[in-house]
């Protein structure tokens, strides 16, 4: 199957990808790393809020909600 690199906010609900890179810098970057957003980690889009934003993701056995502004700065590889 073909591999695609997309930003996390484009990962459809129910689909799983692997974190490819974090484009955040500074403190935000550290926070994402602390939560386990490191390259290679599996991440699944879980559900979105009724306003369509933020979206909850499943990563390392936990549920983390992110805004579009932040999830668009995380690259994931899908198959």
């Amino acid at each position: 199957m073909e591999k695609h690199v997309i930003t996390l906010d484009r990962l459809p609900i129910g689909k799983t990808g692997r974190v490819a890179a974090i484009l955040h810098k500074g403190l935000s970057r550290r926070r994402f790393l602390d939560l386990g957003f490191v390259p290679g980690t599996l991440i699944t889009t879980y559900f979105t809020s009724f306003t369509g934003d933020p979206t909850a993701y499943r990563i390392r056995g936990t549920t983390i909600a992110l805004r579009k502004e932040d999830s668009s700065k995380i690259l994931v590889i899908t198959e």
Binding site: H24, T63, I64, L66, D70
Partner: peptide, 11 residues
């Protein structure tokens, strides 16, 4: 500018 929003939804 808005800061990053990271919210854990605990079980």
């Amino acid at each position: 500018l808005p800061s990053s929003f990271i919210l854990e939804l605990p079980p």
